[in-house]
Design a protein around this nucleic acid. Sequence first.
DNA 1: ACCTGAACACCGTTCAAGT
DNA 2: ACCTGAACACCGTTCAAGT
Lengths: 227, 227
Amino acid sequence: MATRAKRAAKRRAALTRERILRAAINLADRDGIESLSMRKLGQKLGVEAMSLYNHCQNKVDVLDGMVDIVFGEIDLPANGVDWQIAMRKRAVSARQALLRHPWAIGLMESRATPGPATLRHHDWVLGTLRTAGFSIDMAAHAYSILDGYIYGFTLTELTLPFSNSEGAAGVAEIAGNILEGFRPDEYPHLAEMAVDRAMKPGYKYGDEFEYGLDLILDGIHRAQDSV
Amino acid sequence: MATRAKRAAKRRAALTRERILRAAINLADRDGIESLSMRKLGQKLGVEAMSLYNHCQNKVDVLDGMVDIVFGEIDLPANGVDWQIAMRKRAVSARQALLRHPWAIGLMESRATPGPATLRHHDWVLGTLRTAGFSIDMAAHAYSILDGYIYGFTLTELTLPFSNSEGAAGVAEIAGNILEGFRPDEYPHLAEMAVDRAMKPGYKYGDEFEYGLDLILDGIHRAQDSV
DNA sequence: ACCTGAACACCGTTCAAGT
DNA sequence: ACCTGAACACCGTTCAAGT
């Protein structure tokens, strides 16, 4: 069995932190973060779980690395663009990255040490605002509102029971949820909203994102001008 | 030992779903959600872990119940108040509840079935806006922006490495984080922000919350007027 | 009706032993 | 230098047995 192990080792690429993190992201995307274990991760890479500890400190380190990769997937428009357009593009790309990796937001809450892609991202946002003439205080305000909105909206979107369903199947599912979940007279406004919007074919909660984003960008623009 | 068990059973109050959820919240507040286990929860209540399954379906059910209790802790001002004041009060109270229970936001992402307090909360928000004359579409917009901001801001606040520190100790800690974490010339705008704001004594990131909240409420007010 | 002990199929992580 | 097997101290949950 020594020969069998050797052959297996030859067949597979060398284990690296990078490969481990990629595999972990794939597993989490497919099966959910709660079912990601060091043992399954090793198995996916054709290796015993214990081998992972030669390349990552522990599971927390793996989770930190995964979050940093998600940050790295967010597009940061080239310098020189109007700040409002740049912030808008970044916000849209951030939401998409967070939807691709639904486990990421939940993980952020407990990450203590931001990785290099995370730091680069934040530095880019602040730099774009400062270059556009924002004061330090105003840049902090804008940064805090925008990031709050992006994370919070996407979190809400991911939490909705029907976020990913579309078309007829989605409508049926929504109707089912509503009728099962609560009596309409107990929550009349929720029922009204569900019937008039959520159950309309073609409705997607995600479409709300850009309305709020533009309202916020407009508010920041207004506050910035009045300084 | 039959007598010993009986005596212990007499000494403690009857096990109920309510008592289990309260104990779970206390444990999660104190030790973090990741260390909450059915075994420790049982121990805290003077009972074997298996007894919990007589009152809760499983651990997911316990987590659902915990989140619903947090929603129940958010103050909903009495009817008849100006919508802007009502939304402001609710937002402030929601942030406070989420800060009291730092594990709640991370949990929301994966909750499939909202509890009664959660439904009542959402119904109240929509009702307040509709009563104030918001169209269904505009109520949906407002609701989505506000909740996005509240969750997202608080999530960011909880993620910050120095969120809870204050005064001299806080400043020292921040300075340490900055000097260790990254070279200032690598992330110049982050460094600038840290030195000019975060390291100033008395700085609290949470103070940003109301600035953004008012900017958003103002934007909603403006959009509502222009309809 | 409620509680429990034993058991099952899992975890993350350490460490000495292998190559 | 990297990988592994065995071991330790944990998990959530089922189930038959107790009261």
